[in-house]
Computed example of a mutant assay.
Amino acid sequence: MSNQAVANRYAYALFQLAEEKGILNEVAQEMELVKEVVNSTPEFLQFLGHPKVTADKKRAFIETSFKGSLSETSLHTLHLLIENKRIDSLVDMINSFKGMSYEAQNMAEAIVYSAKPLTGEEQAQIAEIFGKKVNKAKLLVTNVVNKDLIGGLKIRIGDRIYDGSVKSQLDRLERQLIAGTR
């Protein structure tokens, strides 16, 4: 079975359990914390995935690393991944869980590329306008500054890309001029 299929199964089980217990937001925040730790400390997954380290030591490591930060549900999920030797699916599982959690709450993430940093008010306007376009009640905006854009915005929401950047328009004009259609 592929790593993504395994991750999806664990994510779905965690999602159902968190939704049933009414702690979906809490578990989503905890999983984001775990993902931040994994991304900032590559040795974390290396230790948990090492075949010579016993499962008991790995569980103890998880307990001490996240003491007081994770609910019983989140800890149990991490323990299951360790016991079943599926810890390599952790990041994919968290991403799948996040997607399910957002879908259940009618939310989406938007990455907005701009030539200069956006103000909070501009981000709120983008969230409101594009939230309606993609039929989501809430849009979480992350601004990424990209000096190559020259001006305008490029917005990515899931698989959709809305490109209103000056660079894109200039590239399009260049292609039309080369093709002789303009």
Rank of each mutant, 00 (worst) to 15 (best):
S96R: 04
G99P: 10
M100G: 08
M100H: 04
S101R: 06
Y102P: 03
Y102L: 09
E103F: 04
A104N: 13
A104H: 15
N106A: 12
N106R: 10
A108R: 05
E109H: 08
Y113E: 03
Y113V: 02
S114N: 01
S114M: 05
A115I: 05
K116D: 08
L118I: 02
L118E: 13
T119G: 12
G120W: 00
G120C: 01
E121N: 12
Q123C: 09
Q123R: 11
Q125T: 15
I126N: 05
F130L: 09
F130K: 10
G131L: 04
K132T: 10
K132N: 14
V134D: 15
N135L: 13
A137T: 15
K138W: 05
L139W: 14
L139V: 11
L140M: 09
L140F: 13
L140W: 12
N143W: 00
V145E: 01
N146F: 00
K147I: 04
L149G: 06
L149P: 05
G151S: 10
G152Y: 06
G152T: 02
L153D: 00
K154V: 10
I155F: 10
I157G: 04
D159R: 02
D159K: 10
R160Y: 13
I161E: 11
I161P: 05
Y162A: 04
Y162C: 06
D163T: 11
S165P: 03
V166D: 10
V166R: 13
V166A: 06
K167Y: 07
